[in-house]
């Protein structure tokens, strides 16, 4: 019995010794290209994802969902496909934002939306459309440095940029503001 145990123990020892020195992945630092490639790969990805956040008093504060979210360690950010964001100000008033693509920087709570961006005031139906917008989920503000269009019923308001405070529901649009208020048909 002792004769057979010794070779097994020896074999195990050799395997352990080998794994210490032989690393199939190799030292990333040894090959920058590999390290670079690893950085560009998401660490994790999830599909049909939704996250809720509640205020200290237990009220629902915001919901963030996406068809797909890929998390990158290096940037501490998630790249989102079809992101949708719902902001609640605790008085049963809410805004919803959506876009084709987005990047969510977790630590800063910054959501950058790109392509077919929509920001809708769920109470008035006022809809802001643009191609790029940055949402600060901590302060509940939104900023856009590219042309924006606000529509409500048939009235249209255009400008070359805007900042919005979702809590006070105020949008400051400038420069080059143009508006058309269409008369409701009698």
């Amino acid at each position: 019995m002792q004769r057979t145990a010794l070779p097994i123990a020896l074999a195990l020892f050799l395997v352990l010794l080998t794994s210490l020195y032989w690393n199939p992945g190799g030292d990333p630092a040894a090959d920058p290209a590999i390290a670079q490639r690893q950085m560009t790969l998401p660490r994790t990805y999830v599909e049909e994802v939704r996250s809720w956040q509640y205020a200290a008093n237990g009220n629902l504060k915001e919901v963030l969902e996406a068809d797909r979210a890929e998390y990158f360690t290096g940037k501490d950010a998630s790249e989102l496909t079809q992101p949708r964001f719902y902001s609640h100000d605790g008085n049963d008033r809410s805004w919803s934002a959506s876009a084709d693509e987005g990047t969510f920087r977790h630590r800063a709570g910054i959501l950058q939306l790109r392509r077919q961006v929509r920001l809708v005031n769920d109470q008035t139906g006022g809809t802001l459309a643009t191609q790029a917008m940055t949402l600060n989920t901590r302060k509940n503000t939104a900023i856009s440095r590219v042309p924006v269009t606000v529509t409500q019923n048939e009235s249209i308001l255009r400008a070359d940029g805007m900042t919005a405070d979702l809590n006070s529901e105020r949008i400051v649009m400038s420069p080059n503001v143009e508006t058309t208020y269409v008369q409701a048909r009698p």
Partner: peptide, 14 residues
């Protein structure tokens, strides 16, 4: 329709 042009607009939705 009423058309307005300006440098800046502040829209208070509430």
């Amino acid at each position: 329709p009423i058309r307005i042009t300006a440098d800046k607009a502040v829209r208070d939705e509430k």
